[in-house]
Measured scan of single mutants.
Amino acid sequence: MAAGGDHGSPDSYRSPLASRYASPEMCFVFSDRYKFRTWRQLWLWLAEAEQTLGLPITDEQIQEMKSNLENIDFKMAAEEEKRLRHDVMAHVHTFGHCCPKAAGIIHLGATSCYVGDNTDLIILRNALDLLLPKLARVISRLADFAKERASLPTLGFTHFQPAQLTTVGKRCCLWIQDLCMDLQNLKRVRDDLRFRGVKGTTGTQASFLQLFEGDDHKVEQLDKMVTEKAGFKRAFIITGQTYTRKVDIEVLSVLASLGASVHKICTDIRLLANLKEMEEPFEKQQIGSSAMPYKRNPMRSERCCSLARHLMTLVMDPLQTASVQWFERTLDDSANRRICLAEAFLTADTILNTLQNISEGLVVYPKVIERRIRQELPFMATENIIMAMVKAGGSRQDCHEKIRVLSQQAASVVKQEGGDNDLIERIQVDAYFSPIHSQLDHLLDPSSFTGRASQQVQRFLEEEVYPLLKPYESVMKVKAELCL
């Protein structure tokens, strides 16, 4: 049975990233139509530049190519590739079939990587351009969430054990800070992308030097003109047959890092959902379990974690691919890159769409948070109580021993009897502590235990987050809708 299948058929496997999760716009960027249309555009740009620099290419040939950029006979191309065992030459023939007058000058002087690699770089750039505003929107939604809850005390956790208090907004800023680093890295790697350009079979530009009869300047002009037509500021000066596969490492490393950030955020949300302090959106008709109707599973956060793990592992592909590119190139890269580049971007696209949807509907339960604080705060307040007693004339050592005994009794009630923490009640009825009984409410005010959390939130948002989001103001209103 021949390899390949009808990918629109229910009898043929289709990647869930495309069929179930990723956005239509990201799927289109990695589609065959987008790819092969870009090949034709690159052939047109090459012909236009070659004509401008004096090669015998007519206006009629150029116009014929322009008129057929979208006229792609995919069936013919597939048949040609089956016959020739070469995808680029299959599309040269297919393009030439609908451009008979231009057929002889299509791909003039070029090698397969002229269309293959340059198209990949265009796709990487455009895919990054799709991700950047999506990530900015996630940051914006979380920034709104953090600002609104900047002063809401909550129990902090280290080692997932109760620690000092923080605020809900401050905790959210930990998430935002990681995503801001990801946004900066995505922008950097996007701006650092260079075009492969017009380089020939081993990167020496020998074929173009021959076409222009040894004119170095025209060869350099050709490279520059096509690079500018493709919208790049610069091209690699040095290439082998391909652009260095280190570029793929750079791009997928940034995406993998984004995956790590999203995994951490969504894990926190899942843990908070278990504590009943916070939940992701839950639709009115949504079913959490087929057997347990009360369940409210954090399905979206779980999906993000599941896909983020996949995204983090994909960076190993370009690392290994770059390491086995012998001399000017081997074909070890080809099949692998067809999979890992598309999957990385479709996965990143999915987790950003999902995280935006989550961040637009996060639900906080202040009463649950308050109750958990009441359970733990008495123990945390013991040092403040000791200091207040010393100020009232008591002995630190005597007070410490009193607190120690009462704390152990209260802990026994919590752990052995399943009761509430009654340390404060014990202190309130103990005559030894009568000098500070009137101060206990103040000493137990949760806001006095959150330090500068709310001020940190305000400063972080104003100095770091809002300036970073400013270039994306025009796209901030787009909502994230999930079908599944």
Rank of each mutant, 00 (worst) to 15 (best):
A3G: 09
A3R: 11
A3K: 14
H7F: 10
P10V: 15
S12L: 11
Y13M: 15
R14T: 15
S15T: 15
L17S: 10
R20K: 07
Y21C: 02
S23F: 07
S23Y: 15
C27S: 09
F28T: 08
F30C: 12
F30S: 01
D32H: 15
D32V: 13
R33V: 14
Y34A: 11
Y34V: 06
Y34R: 05
Y34T: 05
K35Q: 14
T38V: 12
W39K: 00
Q41N: 12
L42V: 15
W43S: 03
A47L: 04
A47R: 02
A49T: 06
E50T: 09
T52K: 11
L53C: 15
G54Q: 09
P56E: 11
P56H: 15
P56G: 09
D59E: 07
D59G: 08
E60L: 11
E60H: 10
I62A: 05
E64L: 10
S67I: 15
E70T: 14
N71G: 10
F74Y: 12
K75E: 10
E79R: 15
E81C: 00
R83Q: 12
D87Q: 04
M89I: 04
H91N: 11
H91W: 06
H91V: 05
C99Q: 03
A103Y: 04
G104Y: 08
G104D: 09
L108T: 10
L108Q: 03
G109W: 00
G109S: 03
Y114M: 06
Y114L: 03
G116P: 03
D120N: 07
L121Q: 11
L124M: 13
L130D: 05
L131N: 11
L132Y: 12
A136W: 05
R137V: 15
R141Y: 15
K147V: 12
L152I: 14
T154Y: 04
T154R: 00
T158E: 00
H159D: 00
H159K: 02
F160A: 05
P162G: 04
Q164E: 00
Q164C: 08
Q164G: 02
V168R: 02
G169R: 01
R171V: 00
L174D: 09
I176K: 01
I176N: 07
D178M: 01
D178N: 12
D178W: 04
L183R: 03
N185G: 11
K187S: 12
R188V: 06
F195E: 01
G197N: 00
G197P: 02
G197L: 00
G200E: 01
T201E: 00
T202M: 06
T202W: 01
T204W: 01
A206C: 13
S207R: 01
F208H: 08
L211G: 04
L211P: 14
H217L: 14
H217M: 10
V219T: 08
V219P: 04
D223Q: 11
K229G: 04
G231E: 07
F232E: 02
K233I: 11
R234I: 09
A235R: 08
Y243W: 05
R245T: 01
K246V: 03
V247I: 10
I249K: 04
E250I: 15
V254I: 11
L255C: 14
A256S: 15
S257V: 06
L258G: 03
L258W: 14
G259F: 00
S261I: 04
S261N: 00
V262E: 03
I269C: 05
L271P: 01
L271C: 07
L272N: 05
A273M: 14
N274W: 08
K276W: 03
K276Y: 08
K276T: 07
E279W: 01
P281V: 12
F282E: 06
F282H: 07
Q286P: 02
I287L: 07
G288C: 06
S289M: 03
S289C: 00
S290G: 03
R296A: 07
E302P: 02
R303E: 01
C305A: 09
S306M: 00
A308S: 11
R309H: 13
R309M: 09
H310Y: 07
L311D: 01
M312S: 03
M312C: 08
T313D: 03
T313G: 14
Q320E: 04
S323I: 02
F327T: 11
E328P: 03
T330I: 03
D332A: 00
N336L: 12
N336A: 12
R337V: 02
R338Y: 02
C340E: 02
A342I: 12
F345P: 02
L346W: 07
T347Y: 08
A348Y: 04
D349K: 03
I351K: 02
L352R: 03
N353P: 07
N353W: 06
L355K: 04
E360C: 08
G361N: 15
Y365G: 03
P366K: 08
K367M: 06
E370M: 14
E376C: 04
L377G: 02
P378S: 05
N384C: 11
I385Y: 07
I386D: 01
I386P: 01
M387N: 11
M387E: 00
K391L: 05
G394M: 06
S395C: 10
R396I: 04
R396D: 01
D398K: 15
R404E: 02
V405L: 14
Q408A: 14
A410W: 05
A410C: 06
E417C: 09
D420L: 05
D422Q: 06
L423G: 02
I424L: 12
I424Q: 14
E425M: 08
I427A: 08
P435N: 07
Q439W: 05
Q439T: 11
Q439E: 14
L440E: 02
H442R: 10
L443K: 02
D445V: 10
S447A: 12
S447F: 15
F449A: 04
T450Q: 05
G451S: 03
A453T: 10
S454H: 08
Q458A: 13
E462M: 15
E463R: 12
Y466K: 14
P471S: 15
P471W: 15
P471M: 15
E473M: 13
V475E: 14
V475L: 14
M476N: 15
K477E: 15
K477P: 15
V478M: 15
K479A: 15
L484P: 06
